[in-house]
Design a protein around this nucleic acid. Sequence first.
DNA 1: CCGCAATAGCCCACTTTTCCCCACTTTTTT
DNA 2: AAAAAAGTGGGGAAAAGTGGGCTATTGCGG
Lengths: 155, 155
Amino acid sequence: MFRGSDPINMDAKGRMAIPTRYRAVLDDLCAGELVITIDMKSTCLTLSPLPEWRRFEEKVAALPALDPLGEMLSRFVVGQAKDLQLDGSGRILLPTELRDYAELEKKVVLVGRTQRLEIWSEANWNAERDKSQQSYRAMLDEPGAISDALKNLSW
Amino acid sequence: MFRGSDPINMDAKGRMAIPTRYRAVLDDLCAGELVITIDMKSTCLTLSPLPEWRRFEEKVAALPALDPLGEMLSRFVVGQAKDLQLDGSGRILLPTELRDYAELEKKVVLVGRTQRLEIWSEANWNAERDKSQQSYRAMLDEPGAISDALKNLSW
DNA sequence: CCGCAATAGCCCACTTTTCCCCACTTTTTT
DNA sequence: AAAAAAGTGGGGAAAAGTGGGCTATTGCGG
């Protein structure tokens, strides 16, 4: 569904254009209704079509009421989610708080992750990519570090 | 229902504006009648539409009379709850005692948690978020520490 | 029982943000 | 090379948020 990374300029008002190749998909998937929120693991944002987001929200809601993880996810991930709508020019307006969280400046990178998208600042994206590549290679050298699921990923 | 976080300025009189996107919902859900109280676990306040609050109150009342946790909830959560009414400009006035409890100063954050809302001081909110994020990341680095619940939350 | 002070409520005015639209530049396509 | 499409930027109107002043109400002390 979503694939590849696109460098995009955020303008002074905090808007960013969604690449055209996604627009048709977004249109009939969710009529341009998106949900954006933070990523707990990384300094980036997650952008999902509304139906996809609902599936996640339901999973979180289904967790036991006193589960600390569920509480955390509900409070910080759901709690910081915002509904967005593509504007007439196929752009979205990034909420200020989330812009701050992900340290977004003018140059941002939109990364396709199949069902959803990630939004990174260019600086963080490059840093994270280099870092991950190194640790990935290190992991391959370390016996036992490869999960079963990954072993079966024949590619 | 409620989703996302909004930074809001409390004015010198202790009033805070409720974001407009909630007003219509609040209007036909409870005609602007809200209940505010403390959160026992965190340094924040809980704001709920009256009908939602009633459900909670009934559940607490239904607990066995000698249940110590129930007693606590009833005494301190129900005991400190206050009815609020949206004013003509869509604002609520935060009771002084509760303002103190949650350490609210000028900058507060309103967090949407589906059925209800949370009110945090900006400082406490950021601190709590950073803390949670750290422990979340630590959990991921520690193999085996990931609960089944999380594994199923493949998102 | 009355007056004073403090708090709460109402309303208006100002500032900031958001939304909508158009125009310009760059890239791709024919 | 021209035309079309995509991406970028900005102006202006509208709406949301913020703050302050004025009035009404409450509660307290005299």
